[in-house]
Amino acid sequence: MAKTAIHAEDLVKIYANNFKALNGISLSVEDGKTFALVGPNGAGKTTLIRILTTQIRPSSGNAFVEDLNVLTQDDEIRRIISYVPQEISVWTDLSGYENLLIYAKIFGIQKEERKKRIDEVLNKMGLYSVKDEMVRYYSGGMMRRLEIACALLTKPRILFLDEPTIGLDPAARKVVWDELKSFKEEYGITIFFTTHYMDEADMYADEIALINRGELIKKGNPEELKGLIGGEIIQLELDGYDEEILYKIRELDFVNEVFREGNEIRIVTKGKGLELFDFLDFIKRLGIKIKKISLKQVSLDDVFLKYAGSSIEARGRAVEVARVRSRIRKA
């Protein structure tokens, strides 16, 4: 059986203001896997990652990182992990090289080894050509890559990333992940990351846990999770309909589920193919006019919508915009 890199048992965190940020979270991460913790802002992702990286202690429950106990063996855990926080963790008034140099010294990397390691991570993260520029002139994606480079200096066994691509455009996100993947392949490390971008988890994670309001809603690999929903989704708007019609749709043999979001009806099919044609026939027979219709693949957001009762995207966006702005202002 594969080794466990991370194991959490019934973690509860109640902050000083009595706010319960985690309400009994249990999960396991296999060695060498990329694991995504996915949930909207305020779900408790950062709280969980801060407990696993031994910054704060759980109010109850326990967790293990490679069989080391976060409560009693935190010193040893800190020797094998690396962590990139959600907020900026490099000094923007130093150059990229100086940042790595200071971190290398903080980690106590010996002088002979230092330059070799710094050059290595600079190359790996594609930053060698800008190493002497002030970090405040870096783009968001470059800054993130520098932070990951700092985290990789120590050749950690487990890498924790809190919202590694927050505020980055899709192209910059892809670059960050390409670099991460190549490093992972070379060293076989375990990556534990949080995100509220569903598509990111879908694309890069081997395993996913969905969390909402401090509770774990579902876990599994992306295909399993999407399989919980069904085949495809027909989104449509009808020119006048009533509950009876919805009921009839629900009764169709290829329909798994029907949701309503505003004017829109979402029909989840069982995924046996060509169901859209059957459905169009059915609507035509009822004599109802279709205003708009489209077909889409099931996404993790649909899974979240089903089990958490609201869409992660709708909630994520506004908060994220505010946060990215404050990130930029602080930098």
């Binding site: 926080p85 903080i106 700092c150």
Partner: peptide, 14 residues
Amino acid sequence: RESGVLKKLLTTPL
């Protein structure tokens, strides 16, 4: 406290 540097330092063996 609100920046990441301090949080990161907490996870080093220091």
